[in-house]
């Protein structure tokens, strides 16, 4: 197999693996989109502990709620001042 074809084949296999993992994550109601899951897969393949990563994602989700609330409060404050 020529190198370019080999690379494309490997990419397709990796893509398929991400697809299957994403489907499992959806069945288990993990609330993970494809992009986040791909990033997490790369991090785990680089040696990050899966439990530590899950705890970091949970913490970031909490932060995300705070950020959204702050954004809403700022938007409402701006509208009141007008």
């Amino acid at each position: 197999m020529p190198p370019a074809d080999e690379r494309t084949g490997k990419q397709a296999a990796a893509q398929q693996a991400v697809d299957i993992l994403h489907e499992i994550a959806t069945i288990l109601n993990c609330q993970l989109d494809r992009r986040t899951l791909s990033i997490c897969i790369s991090m785990i393949e680089n040696g990050v502990n899966p439990e530590a990563l899950a705890s970091a994602v949970r913490e970031l989700r909490n932060e995300s709620v705070d950020i959204e609330q702050q954004r809403l409060a700022a938007a409402l404050g701006g509208r009141k001042r007008q």
């Binding site: 693996a17 993992l21 499992i24 994550a25 993970l32 785990i44 439990e51």
Partner: peptide, 26 residues
Amino acid sequence: RVESVYARETQWTPELLHFILELADK
């Protein structure tokens, strides 16, 4: 899907599934 993941098992398959299980929500 689990069978499919294990059929193409890599070094990191258990860790990846562990991560997904950690975030499973009811």
